[in-house]
């Protein structure tokens, strides 16, 4: 699964520009599903039919945070804005790669108060160009952070674990899946990082009876880090709440009972910031009972997001069990 993940994270896919990763996913999963289509916003929807079964929508988002050029000056320096939650603290000295292959480094204006983190408006991208004609990008071009996959053994690092690790979990689940008690919609969504837009329309189109997002969550196990119970390597996390939603308590119970029965390690997650595609599913149409299976991840939205492969493997195992286990509550 590490190789699957490595391939996925190395493909650039900023919000709204997910085509390359979508093509790759489609190539892998088309033989594994009964039906596959791309909706008008670019979500990839793959269906495993099951007559007379409740419909479960699984979602992982394809996009990663990135940036977009807003201006190129006469000397060939380019100004940019964030696509999604890019944090200035991680930018200075960083390298970026554009969809057209161009690479550049992020510089910053002379900073009078050097202890302060400058805002993105004070930064620019240097392509090594000396004029606007030399500059390899134009206004509107988009980039992602350029940081190669790092294999630390049990733990792996990339700029796009959020949420390519969720994508990998869904693909691996599809590969190992035999039977399910649900009709399954595997949705690989677009534009999560700019406000769960893909999942909003996908959920409206799919009309699921039950929803489950697979995404990353933060951890509280680094020096003086977040006050949070989730730790890397202690199992996938079952979301109870985040800033965007209260996970449906019935779905939470189903997930916990299934994990305990299968003796798969899990953690109870409360994330006090951030949200996922699950919120969009929960509030779709007349409402959908929805939960989240989270992969613990350190340094989310930094170019070096770290996950533990054991958590990833256990997430796949738990998901496979869930797909074979009827939800223990009435769907109205």
């Amino acid at each position: 699964m590490k190789e699957l993940l490595r391939t996925l994270v190395e493909i650039p896919a900023p919000p709204g520009y997910e085509g390359l990763v979508r093509n790759q996913i489609r190539e892998w999963i088309e033989p594994l599903v009964d039906e596959i289509r791309i909706d008008p916003l670019g979500n990839l929807l793959a269906v495993r039919n099951q007559a007379n079964a409740p419909r479960l929508m699984l979602v992982a988002h394809m996009d990663e945070i990135g940036l977009m050029i807003t201006h190129v000056d006469q000397q060939g320096f380019a100004r940019f804005v964030a696509l999604g939650g890019v944090m200035p603290i991680h930018c200075v000295g960083g390298r970026v790669r554009f969809l057209n292959g161009a690479q550049g480094v992020i510089g910053v204006e002379k900073n009078p108060a050097s202890s302060e983190i400058p805002p993105l408006e004070k930064m620019f991208i240097d392509f090594g160009a000396s004029s606007v004609e030399d500059c390899p990008v134009r206004v509107g071009d988009v980039a992602v952070f350029d940081r190669p996959f790092l294999d630390l053994g049990k733990r792996v690092v990339s700029k796009a674990m959020d949420d390519r690790v969720g994508v990998a979990v869904l693909i691996e689940t599809l590969r190992r899946l035999e039977q399910s008690v649900f009709e399954l919609y595997f949705v690989f969504s677009v534009q999560e990082e700019v406000g769960v837009r893909g999942a909003t329309v996908a959920a409206f189109g799919v009309e699921p009876d039950l929803g489950l997002a697979v995404d990353v969550t933060a951890t509280g196990d680094t020096p003086k880090g977040h006050r949070m119970e989730v730790r890397l390597g202690k199992g996938p996390a079952i979301k109870i709440r985040d800033a965007g939603m209260i996970a449906d308590p019935r779905v939470v119970r189903w997930m916990i009972q299934t994990a305990e029965k299968a003796k798969i390690p899990y953690q109870r997650e409360i994330l006090e910031f951030g949200g996922t595609d699950a919120r969009a599913i929960q509030l779709s149409r007349s409402g959908v009972p929805t939960g989240v299976l989270s992969i613990p991840c350190r340094y989310i939205h930094a170019p070096s997001e770290m996950v533990d492969m054991e958590d990833v493997e256990n997430a796949v195992r738990l998901l496979l069990r869930l797909l074979r286990t009827s939800h223990p509550f009435e769907l109205m």
């Binding site: 965007g244 939603m245 209260i246 919120r279 929960q282 509030l283 149409r285 007349s286 409402g287």
Partner: peptide
């Protein structure tokens, strides 16, 4: 339901 968090009850009931 859930007005204090997402206004989710009103929006879904309204749709229904």
């Amino acid at each position: 339901t859930q007005e204090e968090e997402t206004l989710g009850g009103a929006v879904t009931s309204g749709f229904q």
